[in-house]
Write a protein that binds this DNA or RNA. Structure first.
Lengths: 244, 244
DNA sequence: CGGTGCATTGATCAGAATCAATGATCGTGG
DNA sequence: CCACGATCATTGATTCTGATCAATGCACCG
């Protein structure tokens, strides 16, 4: 997913005067509701950062000083129990906003899955902007609503679906996400490890692996070059995911 | 949707001029940020309704015409799979807002657990008010944030906790809720059935029942008059809930 | 080449589900 | 007022899904 390994892109002229205007994920992010001047203003409080795989981005419990917009790569959000059990609450990518669910302190941790680019805002300065631009605040509320809906689907998955249903639901959600950002539905990229998938679905790595093997055997999925997974019959997978 | 079975309550005098000012849950609800005039205004677009146990309040998939504030009783939010498996995504009570996680259509269903009172707003009229009063919108965003944090805790519970940990976590959350609305921590009221608890925790009724028996045997909980559950040692229960 | 980390596969186990029966509670009507 | 039925909760016996324990395979990299 945009693994820009070595060099960073050479800034184009318009990126210097108004970098956010040239942002590739602007349409999907909170920034989609901002006009040119507003974009310039938000650019002035934004810092772009890059993270390597496994780098921590935020730590649960720390003061919530910053909010983030993911502009490249994949981020995992997770919580830990004292004995080390981990629940990944979501994978974020292009355009996703990180830090809505925050009071004084972060309620979860975040790490880079692959090479990640983010846009970072100081919390208090972003809040000033929110006060100034109610339509930005409205946009945030809209994004929070969507996250809540997703969270409920996730609860259904964790509480009531079988291992097979979970895996298929997961693959379909990745597929839909790819479509939403303008990609193809079928060969799905899996940047995260089996352990990550397990901790997201409430399973173990072994069960994830076995379930993949099962789906392969039944020709419900096929492994392509570079670990991409193709979904030959999305409709029938959707039936499986919904428990029919 | 509007299943107001018999009669509605007789309004008291102050409820007529400004019913919301007298609302017992105002401090906890979205309305806490509104002043006298604003309260009068929101009152003008609000309808109070009552529901009996098991009455449907909203239906997943229906157009999201209304939003609600719970002012009494307990509401269960849930989603269903086609084969009938149910996941309860939350129990709402006094002061909770219902409908943040809503686009054009409701993303979940809601039913009355016991006798429920709500304040109902037409969605479009409430949105007009949100545009007019940015601090109300800010309040909504704050409530949405809190719901997201809760949702993440819920995911951790569903995905990674054992049956015993789930039940104890659940009891403690009820206890904390009681404290938040000004009640006592220890004898906890359980208005919902074992089946509801099971569908909330991703368990079966039998497992819920067995786990209660286990906790009773170990003197971790005690059943009081009227089905109230007392928690003799909240600190040690907290240890269990956190998986130590 | 050998090491390290990740994925797969196998064997066994355990926690919770399922199937089944009994018990408690409550509302209703005789 | 009691008896009956309905609903819900509890308990027991058994099954089964997914976890755990363990070994092997595979790819990447110094």
């Amino acid at each position: 997913m945009d693994v820009n390994l070595n060099r960073r892109p050479v800034p184009k002229p318009d990126m210097i005067s108004n970098p956010c205007a040239a942002c590739s994920v602007r349409d999907m992010s909170i920034c989609s509701v901002l006009n040119g001047d507003e974009l310039r203003e938000i650019a002035s409080i934004a810092t772009t950062l890059e993270f390597s795989p496994h780098d921590p981005i935020i730590d649960e419990g720390e003061p919530a000083e910053f909010l983030f917009n993911v502009t490249g790569g994949t981020v995992r959000l997770y919580k830990l129990l004292p004995d080390g059990r981990r629940q990944i609450t979501g994978f974020l990518c292009n355009g996703d906003f990180m830090g809505i669910a925050v009071n004084q302190n972060y309620a979860y941790s975040a790490e880079a899955v692959d090479r990640v680019k983010v846009c970072r805002f100081a919390r208090n300065r972003l809040e000033t902007l929110l006060d100034k631009y109610p339509h930005l605040e409205k946009r945030m509320l809209g994004m929070a609503s969507n996250e809540l809906i997703q969270a409920q689907d996730q609860m259904m998955m964790l509480g009531r679906k079988t291992a097979k249903e979970k895996i298929v639901t997961f693959l379909l959600s990745l597929s839909q996400r790819q479509v939403k950002v303008g990609g193809k539905a079928s060969p799905v990229a899996l940047p995260m490890s089996r352990t990550d998938i397990a901790d997201y679905l409430g399973l173990t790595t072994e069960t994830v692996s076995r379930t993949f093997s099962l789906l392969k055997r039944d020709h419900a999925i096929r492994i392509e070059e570079g670990g991409m997974i193709s979904l030959p019959d999305i409709d029938s997978l959707q039936q499986v995911a919904d428990g029919y």
